[in-house]
């Protein structure tokens, strides 16, 4: 971590806000999923109450067995498994989005909490900061 980042951290010390990162896009095709994940990893350094929500095509970000060699893009999906090591364990997946795509929770590469749209909306309302990609 750079000195500047450490200064920022010190300055913000003690404040814990609820940050939710909302992932709505497929992992490949656009850069939103990858650069969104980079923000999540940085925010772990600030000791905030972080959660991730996956809905719409964003649920594909968590699907097991991603193979990206054919499109010559890095498969960054193993990073989701590393989130636990950063104390980011609140991963919410919208049930309607999973079902609409014929997916189930056991096809996902990390443990998640599957919840209906209404419950997810409630969780969103509790947040201080919502950043959607």
């Amino acid at each position: 971590m750079t000195e500047a980042a450490m200064d920022l951290e010190a300055e913000a010390a003690g404040v814990v806000k609820k940050f939710m990162y909302v992932n709505r896009k497929a992992p490949y095709g656009t850069i939103y999923a990858l650069e969104g994940l980079e923000v999540v990893l940085i925010s772990a350094a600030f000791d905030q109450d972080v959660s991730l929500a996956f809905l719409d095509d964003g649920v594909y970000q968590l699907v097991k067995g991603q193979q990206t060699k054919g499109i010559e893009v890095k498969n960054f999906s193993p990073t989701y498994r590393a989130l636990e090591g950063y104390d980011i364990e609140k991963l919410y997946v919208e049930r309607e989005s999973l079902e609409a795509r014929g997916l189930t929770a056991d096809q996902l590469l990390v443990p998640v909490e599957v919840m209906g749209r209404d419950e997810l909306v409630r969780r969103m309302e509790e947040q201080d900061v919502v950043i959607a990609f």
Binding site: T2, A4, A5, L8, E9, E11, A12, V15, K17, F19, E38, V39, I42, S43, A45, F46, Q48, D128, V129, V130, I131
Partner: peptide
């Protein structure tokens, strides 16, 4: 760096 975004989220009333 991205820390500036997170710090802004912490400091500001709204992001």
């Amino acid at each position: 760096g991205l820390g500036q975004l997170v710090e802004a989220g912490i400091q500001a009333d709204r992001l």
